[in-house]
Design a protein around this nucleic acid. Sequence first.
DNA 1: GGTTGCGACGTTTTT
DNA 2: CGTCGCAACC
Length: 786
Amino acid sequence: MYLDELNREQREAVLYDQGPLLILAGAGSGKTRTIIYRVAHLIKQGVSPYEILVMTFTNKAANEMKERIRDILGTKYPGMWVGTFHSICLRILQQESIHIGYRTPFTIYSTSNQDTVIKKCIKELDLDQNKFKPRMFSTAINKAKNNLQSYDKFLDSNNPYDKTIGKVYKLYQEELKSNNAMDFGDLIMNTVILFRENREILKKYQDKFKHLLIDEYQDTNRAQYKLVSLLTQNNKNVCAVGDDDQSIYGWRGADLNNILDFENDYQNVKIIRLEQNYRSTENILRAANSVINNNINRKVKELWTDKGIGTKVHLYQADDEETEAYFVLKTIKELNLIKGYEWKDIAILYRTHAQSRPLEDAFLYHNLPYKIYGGTRFYDRKEIQDILAYANLIVNPHDNTRINRIINVPRRGIGERTFERLSNYAAEKNVSYYEAIERTEDIDTLSATYKNKINDFKSLIEKLKVFENENPVDEVINEIALTSGYIDDLSELKKRNSVEAETRLDNIAELINVANRFATLNPDAGLKEFLSSIALETDVDSYEEEDESVTLMTLHAAKGLEFQVVFLVGLEEGLFPSLKFDSNDEDDELEEERRLCYVGMTRAQEELYLSYARSRRQYGEMKYNMPSRFISEIPNECLDQINIEEETGVRSRKQYNKAVECNNPYIVGDKVEHEKLGIGIVLEIDEDIIKVDFLQSGTRMLATEFAPLRQIKDDEITDSMQDIEPEKKKAQLSNGMPDFTVGDIVEHDHFGIGEVAVYDGEFITIDFNNAGRKMLSIAFTKLRKV
DNA sequence: GGTTGCGACGTTTTT
DNA sequence: CGTCGCAACC
C-alpha cells in the first residue's frame, strides 16, 4: 500500500479530501512525492484524470511528475493535464485563440525575438537609440504583463518615462498581434483575459478541472495567481504546495504574499507543514536554517533530519577566482579518489553564469568531465534561430520578424533596399510581409531581377510547406538546412574558418537530433507541436542524472535538484549577495538573495563546501570583495575552516601553475618587505595604493608603482618572520583592545565609526554609519573602541 | 554590399 | 574581459 511509504504529515496531505489545502513543504521534505501520491490517490478514489490539473514551473518538474505518476499507477494517463504554467496556457490559448483575436497556430517569441521587435518599435517611434535600450522596455513590459497591466496605465501616466514605455508597449503589442505572435508574458496574461471576458469558456475549464495542484506556489506572480483564482472560483479544490523560504523569482514578478496570504484568500484552509528533511545531514541543515533565520518576512519553521550529524560545512578562502577554481578541482579529485564519490554526485553552484569560466578553464586543463547548464542557451544560437525561423515561417507565414531575419540568410541577393521596398508595400496595403511576397508583381518599385529573387524565396518556402505535410519533423529540419542553402553556406565558410563553422554545423546536427527524438516520442505531433515544445524549453530541462560528469549551474537552475556534494562558490559581498546594499539592510532583495543561499545550501546531501575569493576579476578589473555576510550567519560549530592563512597566498597560486595577471601584485594579507621599513602585512588595497602595517614602524600608505617593496614568499619566511601574526595580535591586545562584543562602538581608519553586529573571534561584522555593513578579518583590521 | 576594426558598454537570476 | 553596434574600408 503506497500510503505506508509516507510520514504522518505527508499522508494527511494525500488523504485530505475536499477544499483548499496549503502544503508548506521545506527543502527536501518529500514535496514531489506528496503531490504525486495525492494525484494517485485522487484517481484511486474515482476522480477522472481529465479532471486533474497539475501546474509546475519547469518542464523538468512537469516531466518528473508525469513519469512518477505513471510509475505509481502503472498506466499512462494521457488525459491528465500536467505541465508548466506556460505550457498549460499555451494549450488553452491554442484551442481558444479565436476568442482573443489570434489565429491558430500562433508563434511564440522568446526573449531574443522580443528584443528584435522592441528594437524595431524604438526605431519606428523615432526614439533616441542611445538613450533607450531595448532591455529597459522588455524588462518593463514583462513586469507589466506579470502584473496584468496593459499599456493604458502607462500612457495615462504623468511621468514622461512611463509614457514612453506605454508608447513602446502599445506598438510592440500591435506588432506582435500582426505577426500572430505572443511572448512568454502574453501566454499567461492572455489566458487571464480570455477567462475574464468569456464567462462560458471560463466555466468550461472550471467544470473540467475539479482538482488543481500547484507546485512551487511561492513563485507565482500576479497573473498566475489570478489564473489560479479564476479557475478555482467555484470549486475550491486547490492544493498549493510551496516553501516561502525558496522563493527566488521575485525579479520575475513572483509575489511572496501569494503563499503568505493563502489562508486569507480561501476560506477554511487546511495547512500542513512538512518539516522533516530527508536529504541533508544535521550540520548542513543547521547551517542552512541559521542563515534563513535572518529573514524577517517568512513563516517560521525549522527543518529537522535524522540523517545524523555528518561532516561540518567546509569553508575555504581563496586568493582569487583561479585559486578558488583550483581548490574546487583539487577537492573534487580527492573526494573521488579517497571517498569514492562519482563525478555525477557533485555539483558546483554559483550566482552568475560568468563565474563558470575559471572553473571551466581549470576542469578542461585537468581533464575533469563537467557539464554546464544554462548560459548561452542552445536555442539562442544564431544558426538555430535561423533554421527555426524557417520552420516557424512554414507554420505561421505572417511572422514578419522571422521573414526579416532570414529572407537574406544565407545571402540570396535580397538586400536592405529591396527589403525596404517590400516592407513599404506591405505597410501601404496593410498586409503581412508574406502576403506582399505573394504579390511581387504588384510592387512597382521593384525591378524584374529583384522580383525574381523574392519569388525564388517564396517558392523555397512553398516547397518546404509541401514537404512538411508529408514528412516527420527531423526530416523537415534537415530539408530546411539543405534547401535554404544554409549548409552550403557554412561548408563554404568552413574552408576559411573551420572551428566556427564546424560548431555551427554540429549545432544544426544536434537540432535535427532533438527533432528526431521528439518525432519518436510524439509520433502524432507535427512541426507546430515541435516548435511550441522547444519554445518553452530551457537548458536545465535537458539535465540528465546518468551523465558521468560534474554539474555546473546557477543557484536558480539548481532548485529542485539534490547532490551528495555541493560547492557553493563566490560567496562575496557584491557578488552574492549581488546587490550593493547600503545601510538599509533588511531589504526585500537582500532577503531574496538569502533565500537563494538557502536553496543552494539545501541541495547538499552529505558534503557542503563554501568558498570565497579575496580578489576577483569583474568587468576585466580587479575587485576586492568582503566575504559574504551569509558566511557569518552560519554558527561556528557547524563550520570547518579549511585554510584561513596557512594555505592561502603564494603557495596555492603557485600550485595552480598559472601566472596571475594583475596591475597590483598584492592582495590583502600578503607579507611584504620594504627596503627601509622592513617587514609588514598588506591591510588594504585601493587601486595602486596599498596600506601596509609594518612590524616596527606602524601603518603606511604606499604607491606600489614606486615603493621599494617586494613580496615575501612563504618558503622564505624565517623564524622571526613567522611571528608576524602573534606579534600583531599582541600589539592589538596591548593597544587596549581585549575583545569586542556585539554593540560596541568602534572606529576604523577607513570606514569610520560603526557598531559591532557580529563577532566570532575571527571575523567581525560592523555596521558603519557611513560605509554600511562590512565584515572584516580581525587579524587584518585595526579597530579602536570608542 | 560585405568585411573588418575599433570604441563604448555592461552583468544577476528564466518561463 | 567580452560582446555588440557602428563606421570606414575593400
